[in-house]
Design a protein around this nucleic acid. Structure first.
Length: 467
RNA sequence: GGGGCCGUAGGGUAGCUUGGUCAUCCUUCCAGCUUCGGGAGCUGGAGACUCCAGUUCAAAUCUGGGCGGCCCCA
């Protein structure tokens, strides 16, 4: 299993061997979440819920089915999603008068209710989110977690504000939320304002949150944020009475994240032995493996149980008492990405210590039995930080600033001047053989020339192949 | 949208060109014994030719179609 030489195959194999999803479900692009994978996603989603709670959003749950007439209201939106929706055309044997579709995203489902819920400026801002499945009939090749037909865990936050600035403020908060999540997920990323030709269907503008997968040298969008202005409010009639008693359209934003995050975890942190999970999202943070020896089985087991019991209230643990040789267990837990392993056998008992092994390293270290619980927590914190830093370094080193096409390396993210003209941007995409990620949302100091036309510009653009 | 390729056990595969004995090997799974500091061993057992039709004495193998999957180009 070699990540560097054959990334695509490695990725699939790493997922299969970790037991996250079963890909054999007989519908293309739809996977079955197995217990370990579900625990992982619940931890990942838990941090989104924490962030939503911290920032005062509330959770809701809308139906999966959307009536066709609701969906048809926003022209650009249909253009973007029309070819990718699953239709429900019959109720039993009878054709439906109004066809229903499985939501590919929930604007159409939610905004008809938003127009009822929002009456006056006192109802704003309205900030709701849900984590629920959405369906997209993808015609391109599907890829587990990255491009699927059923997104099992689609986080989507939909906010409504009194005016454009209110929505802008929301977007800044969304990006700050990502910074928090990024620490938990160990997924540093760039915030790129997408070029107009690549924005979300119906949006005023889109910000992509782009992580970087070093092995294939490709970007991976792990979150998207959209400024709708009043585009959707006008078609779904989301209006309110302002302070002066005048009717106004609400300004809206959305924030979307999915199990792609898990795809990024696998792709970015994994190695030839399998997954490496950041401790924050690891269903099992510490696995305790007793090394049984003839004649001392009972004693070793009792000791391992006692030790696990001591740390179990502080970290998520698993005591592996199965009838397997230790080596086989090591490999298995490594495949599953468990960040820290404790080995406990006769050696440890006699020396009054335990042996700790980090998943993201190879060194074994002996730690005194008394200090071990505290040391374990410190090591988990350390692993979390180290994984973030490693990904951050890979991202930084993956960016190549160039001022001539000839300088573009075969892999990685390109950073270059862009005058902002669409014709130049498209030409750059073509000649770089990369998609435009866009321009940094918060801007960057830059003085240079447009890579295509040579005009002086103070704007940089990023381009990369992406997932 | 256009073109190409492929469906053999839970996973990975050989066999297919040139039809012919009990469909190969690895892994996995089950039972027992045994072993336990990096994928142990022994014995026994379980498990597959994508579906339909055709050609033929005989089809995993040839032909056609369905279904499913993969890749490349636009």
């Amino acid at each position: 299993m070699e990540k560097e030489s054959n990334f695509a195959e490695w990725y699939i194999e790493a997922i299969d061997r970790a037991g996250i999803v079963d890909r054999r479900y007989p519908v293309k692009g739809m996977n079955v979440w197995m217990p370990y994978g579900l625990r992982l996603m619940r931890l990942i989603n838990g941090f989104m819920r924490d962030e939503m709670a911290r920032t005062g959003h509330e959770e809701v749950q809308f139906p999966v089915l959307v009536p066709e007439d609701q969906f048809q209201k926003e022209a650009d939106h249909i253009k973007g999603f029309g070819a990718n929706v699953y239709w429900v055309t019959h109720g039993g044997l009878n054709p439906l008068d109004v066809r229903l579709l499985l939501r590919p995203t929930s604007e159409a489902a939610m905004y008809s209710l938003y127009s009822l819920w929002i009456r006056a400026h006192t109802d704003l801002p309205l900030r709701l989110y849900q984590i629920a499945p959405v369906f997209r009939y993808e015609t391109r090749q599907t890829r587990t977690f990255i491009r699927v037909r059923e997104l099992s865990f689609f986080f989507e936050s939909h906010t409504a504000h009194e005016n454009f600035d209110g929505a802008e403020e929301q977007i800044r908060e969304d990006l700050e939320i990502w910074e928090h999540l990024a620490r938990k997920y160990a997924l540093p990323a760039l915030f790129n304002k997408r070029p107009d030709w690549d924005k979300f269907a119906g949006a005023h503008y889109t910000v992509g949150v782009d992580a970087y997968v070093a092995a294939p040298g490709r970007a991976m969008q792990v979150a998207s944020i959209h400024q709708y202005r009043d585009n959707f409010a006008r078609v779904y009639d989301v209006t309110f009475e302002d302070r002066r008693g005048e009717r106004q359209y609400a300004h809206q934003t959305t924030y979307g994240i999915s199990e792609r995050v898990l795809g990024a975890e696998v792709a970015i942190h994994g190695d030839d032995r399998g997954l490496i999970l950041p401790p924050e999202i690891a269903p099992i943070q510490v696995v305790v493996i007793p090394i049984l020896a003839k004649g001392a089985k009972g004693r070793i087991l009792a000791e391992a149980r006692a030790f696990e019991g001591e740390i179990a209230d502080k970290v998520r643990t698993e005591l592996d008492v199965r009838e397997m040789r230790p080596g086989a267990k090591f490999y298995e837990w490594e495949r599953k990405g468990v960040p820290l392993r404790v080995e406990l056998g006769l050696d440890e008992i006699e020396g009054d210590h335990v042996t700790l092994v980090r998943r993201d390293g190879t060194r074994r270290r002996k730690v005194s039995r008394a200090d071990a619980p505290k040391r374990i927590q410190a090591m988990l914190d350390r692993i979390q930080r180290d994984l973030y830093r490693k990904a951050e370094r890979e991202l930084r080193e993956g960016i190549h600033t160039i001022d001539a096409y000839g300088d573009a390396p075969p892999k990685g993210i390109i950073r270059a001047g862009w005058c902002g003209k669409e014709s130049c941007g498209l030409a750059m995409e073509d000649k770089l053989n990369r998609g435009m990620l866009g321009t940094p949302y918060f801007g960057e100091e830059f003085r240079g020339r447009c890579l295509e036309c040579g005009d002086a510009t103070d704007t940089v653009a990023y381009a990369a192949n992406s997932y």
